[in-house]
Write a protein that binds this DNA or RNA. Structure first.
Lengths: 331, 331
DNA sequence: CTGAAAGCGCTTACAG
DNA sequence: CTGAAAGCGCTTACAG
């Protein structure tokens, strides 16, 4: 680590000025540089192991070439890695670097965007107003997620209900979560379930389940003739399944349960959980393209509502409504 | 966002030179600046909303004040957030910023450390030699994890076996994972189980389980008189539990199963999984202190081997060996 | 005790 | 078509 290699070293090795080195390496348009020189610059830069000082570059150009993504507090970490990997590729090709941070960490350490000065910051989910204000106040450019993409991500609850409906269920429940961090998302998914169930004239019960109350809640639902439950996520679904199993209620014979998110546990539960899976690879790419458009101040390409972001994963925890249930008089 | 506020603006507002502003804001030692001036600098900086350009600062000082952490490919994302939150606090207090990246993303985009130029990069687990070479070649300072801390993180398997032993089990199995990414860690945990079981004269079977082979493997183990299984992680444990349940084998009456990591699914399984929990908050702080020592080129404080990083979480999937098993002649 | 000035390593008008 | 030079916003010896 004796001495850092700078553009001056490369320029000297090739026998041109530092400007020329900069022009070549940055592919600056509108410069007329002979192919021979061009090649030698690349060659020497490579040979010397030169990599431009990002801070000097940021200072001179006024751009950090960093895109900061604020991770949502969703219960879906297992989904982000795929999405961010894709986004990372797209941004990388455009010369930008993707940096992510957990909002919990950002909470206590306001320094991240101060010490990185990203060119743009975006969040995967909706950005809390307070945070948005703070970023704008700090002079940072922010970009809201594509409304169409966000909308596409909310079709899961309707898919849950439609799946249950197609199996003959007409009296269902929504098992929400009591986890504080998911409060808002819980409300959103519950509203979607309610809307879809209402449109199809299905009876709906709702409650937030916790380990302590899930047995009681389940009893009430069964008394009300509920034959299937759509859960906020796979964890909530697992809670319901567990309570049912402990009471000798058979899944799916006596009760169908569908989760949401396809968390790792969904496939590992016994019975394995039917759930809704996200396909976020495409969303990751769209996300990155949107960020780039924002950086170039271009109009953003509209996210296609037809993109299939969510799909039903049918496993063991849901089944057709049992004959004896209909005999009981439940429609 | 009209015009960026710079140190010059603050200096002008207070009526001192830029140097003085810099000295005050950085708490540069060895400077004699009157308390009155000091206060007015802070005041004006605050009023104007001044925050120093990190890139200019990095360029001038030769330090980015960024600590880059490479996340391991462990199946324990749910543990990192707590650990990193703690590490983040400690670093923040020292004026450093913690940035993390997923190794999968780093794989395809070599740019992250080039575009951030962290002062130091560390990884939570052991760093692959290839990656280490690459970082060193790029002129970055790296810091290996504290060997004592790493060692403390490997006591889980022994705890699993000890728990089973204390319940009377003498013939046990290790259910490894077949997931490629955990290959090395799987080998480590298996070796620890083997060592501890051997020392206590317990019979041991081992196999890696997959959804397709777990039923067969389980049959073989039961034929061999195995009464308990220690799993690589909770996922592997869930696989074993699922296979057992489907075959009518009762857990823990007929077979005890203990997992590792206390993943979210452990508490949600029916029966709920006994497992090993990490307490990484303390490790996070130790980790950050080690990074700081490395940055200051100080000797690193030795991680206390007595720190309790792992603990047993006893739930429903393990129990004392059934009487009829001893009657069968198994010791 | 404080400030003028050099320098960090780039980018990018601008002059030749 | 190429290079000399100013400038980005800081830090930090150094001079007074």
């Amino acid at each position: 680590v004796s001495k850092r290699i700078t553009a001056t070293d490369v320029a000297a090795a090739v026998g041109v000025s530092r400007s020329t080195v900069s022009f070549v390496l940055n592919h600056t348009p509108g410069q007329t540089i002979s192919p021979a020189v061009r090649q030698r610059v690349f060659q020497e830069a490579d040979r010397l192991g030169y990599s431009p000082d990002p801070h000097a570059r940021a200072l001179a150009s006024g751009q950090s070439r960093i895109v900061l993504v604020l991770l949502p507090e969703w219960p879906v970490e297992f989904l982000f890695s795929e999405m961010l990997e894709q986004a990372s590729h797209v941004l990388d090709d455009a010369g930008y670097t993707l940096v992510t941070t957990d909002p919990r960490r950002a909470e206590h350490t306001q320094r991240l965007w101060r010490s990185l000065r990203p060119d743009i910051v975006l969040s995967i989910g909706a950005m809390p107003q307070r945070q948005e204000d703070e970023l704008v106040h700090a002079g940072l450019r922010i970009m809201a997620p594509d409304p169409a993409a966000v909308r596409s991500l909310t079709v899961g609850p309707a898919m849950q209900v439609e799946h249950l409906r197609s199996l003959g269920h007409r009296r269902i429940s929504f098992a929400g979560t009591a986890v504080a961090a998911f409060r808002e998302m819980n409300a959103t998914r519950r509203a979607e379930v309610r809307r879809y169930a209402g449109r199809n004239a299905m009876a709906l019960r709702t409650a937030n389940v916790r380990p302590e109350n899930v047995a009681r809640v389940l009893d009430r639902w069964l008394d009300d003739g509920v034959t299937a439950v759509a859960a906020f996520n796979d964890n909530a679904a697992a809670l319901v399944v567990g309570a049912a199993l402990r009471q000798g209620i058979r899944i799916p014979d006596d009760l169908s349960v569908i989760g949401h998110d396809d968390a790792p546990l969904a496939a590992l539960l016994t019975p394995a959980l039917t759930t809704i899976r996200f396909d976020l690879a495409e969303l990751g790419r769209a996300f990155a393209r949107r960020a780039l458009a924002g950086l170039r101040m271009e109009a953003t390409e509209q996210f296609s509502e037809d993109s299939i972001l969510m799909q039903l994963v049918e496993r063991e925890s849901t089944g057709a409504i049992a004959p004896r249930d209909t005999a009981t008089g439940i429609r």
